[in-house]
Simulated scan of single mutants.
Amino acid sequence: MRQIITQVDAFTDKPFAGNPAAVCVLATPQTDAWMQNVAQEMNLSETAFLIKLDDGFSLRWFTPTTEVPLCGHATLASSHVLWSEGHLSTNEDARFHTKSGLLIAKRQGDWIELDFPVIHSQPTTAPPELSQALGVPLKTVMQNSLGYLVEVESEDLVRQMQPNFQQMKSLPIADVVVTSLAKADSEYDFISRFFAPGLGINEDPVTGAAHCCLAAYWRDRLHKDQFLAYQASSRGGVVKVNYVGGDGLRPTVGDRVLLAGQAVTVLRGELIL
């Protein structure tokens, strides 16, 4: 049996930028081991697997080493594939049933908007080895379901840092979102990078899930709900962020964040089972 697999660059409007993801729309269910093997073979930060359901699609995400409960860029890539490959008409929303609940993607012109849960962070005391591993002084340290969320003093520090990934792997929590305000003359509100050696990804190029926690973090500090964000990896990517839900006064577990990005197909091939 031959299975089409598509590689998409997400959170970018040009090829060879943003975050690449592989997308496989399965005709029949496959085992977890098989999906993990395919993800390892593709060797991208995420490979997405979809199966058609009565009300949308089942969606699961695998890194080369493990399954993850939430992935923004591979959801964006999956939505792009469903519309561009004719699995959905262009006026239909993409509905995904995932381990993080129901996720909905909508077309907004050239952009794709994802409706995701907000990830709230709590203050924490980081081990001194964290600053050593990142190689920069830490301004603020929070913790959430992704790992640490660290603010540093400047955009230059975010862009220039070169973490020691082997040292990061020895920490109790190995995955870190690093962020700062953008420069005053920038078109962006904040920038970030995401290091995830605990997931088998030293640096993820552009991370939707990270912006689920960055939305809440910067909302509390900048007192606004809409942001234009840039993830400053070597590939780089742009994310529109819109914090919605809740009562507008205090964070709740029901809060949502709308993440918008663009996507480009760069490769389509046959996976021979």
Results as ranks from 00 to 15, higher is better:
Asp220Lys: 15
Leu157Tyr: 04
Ser180His: 10
Ile112Asn: 12
Glu187Gln: 12
Ser89Tyr: 13
Ile4Asn: 15
Asn43His: 02
Leu76Tyr: 12
Asp32Arg: 06
Asn144Thr: 03
Pro128Lys: 06
Met35Glu: 00
Glu92Phe: 05
Thr90Gly: 08
Pro117Phe: 02
Glu85Leu: 11
Gln162Gly: 02
Pro20Lys: 06
Phe116Gly: 03
Leu259Cys: 10
Phe227Asp: 10
Thr28Glu: 15
Asn164Phe: 05
Lys183Leu: 08
His87Ile: 05
Val253Gly: 04
Ser121Ala: 15
Asp220Cys: 03
Lys183Gly: 11
Ile104Gln: 12
Gly246Trp: 07
Val8Phe: 07
Pro137Met: 05
Arg2Met: 08
Val141Tyr: 04
Pro69Ala: 04
Gly248Val: 06
Asp93Thr: 13
Val176Thr: 15
Ile112Arg: 11
Ala21Val: 00
Ala232Gly: 10
Val266Ile: 15
Ala260Pro: 07
Thr265Gly: 12
Leu146Cys: 05
Ala126Pro: 11
Asn43Lys: 01
Ser154Trp: 04
Leu76Glu: 09
Phe11Pro: 09
Leu249Glu: 12
Arg95Met: 08
Pro127Asp: 14
Asp13Asn: 14
Val81Thr: 11
Ile4Leu: 15
Lys106Thr: 13
Met42Gln: 12
Pro15Trp: 02
Pro29Gln: 00
Thr207Trp: 00
Gln3Asn: 13
Asn37His: 13
Pro128Gln: 09
Phe195Glu: 01
Val238Tyr: 07
Val238Gln: 12
Arg107Ala: 14
Thr265Pro: 13
Pro29Gly: 01
Phe16Asn: 11
Asn242Arg: 10
Thr125Asp: 15
Asp220Pro: 01
Ala48Phe: 00
Leu134Ile: 02
Ala263Val: 14
Ser121Met: 11
Thr98Ile: 10
Asp189Thr: 06
Asp220Ile: 01
Gly198Asn: 07
Ser84Glu: 14
Trp83Asn: 09
Ala17His: 08
Gly248Phe: 11
His80Phe: 13
Val238Pro: 02
Arg250Val: 13
Pro123Trp: 08
Pro20Met: 06
Gln166Pro: 00
Val81Trp: 07
Trp61His: 04
Ser58Asn: 09
Glu46Asp: 01
Pro128Asp: 12
Val118His: 11
Leu138Pro: 07
Ser100Pro: 11
Val118Glu: 06
Asp255Val: 08
Gln132Trp: 03
Ile201Gln: 01
Thr31Met: 02
Pro172Phe: 09
Val141His: 06
His97Gln: 13
Phe62Trp: 04
Ser89Val: 07
Gln231Lys: 02
Leu59Lys: 07
Glu203Gln: 05
Ala22Met: 02
Ser89Phe: 10
Val141Ala: 05
Asp175Cys: 10
Ala10Pro: 06
Leu88Arg: 08
Leu146Tyr: 03
Arg250Met: 13
Asp93Pro: 13
Leu222Phe: 02
Ala27Glu: 15
Ile5Cys: 12
Ala17Glu: 07
Met42Cys: 03
Pro127Phe: 09
Val158Asp: 04
Gln40Tyr: 11
Ser79His: 08
Lys99Gln: 14
Val23Ala: 01
Asp204Asn: 03
Ala133Lys: 10
Val150Pro: 00
Pro123Glu: 05
Leu134Arg: 01
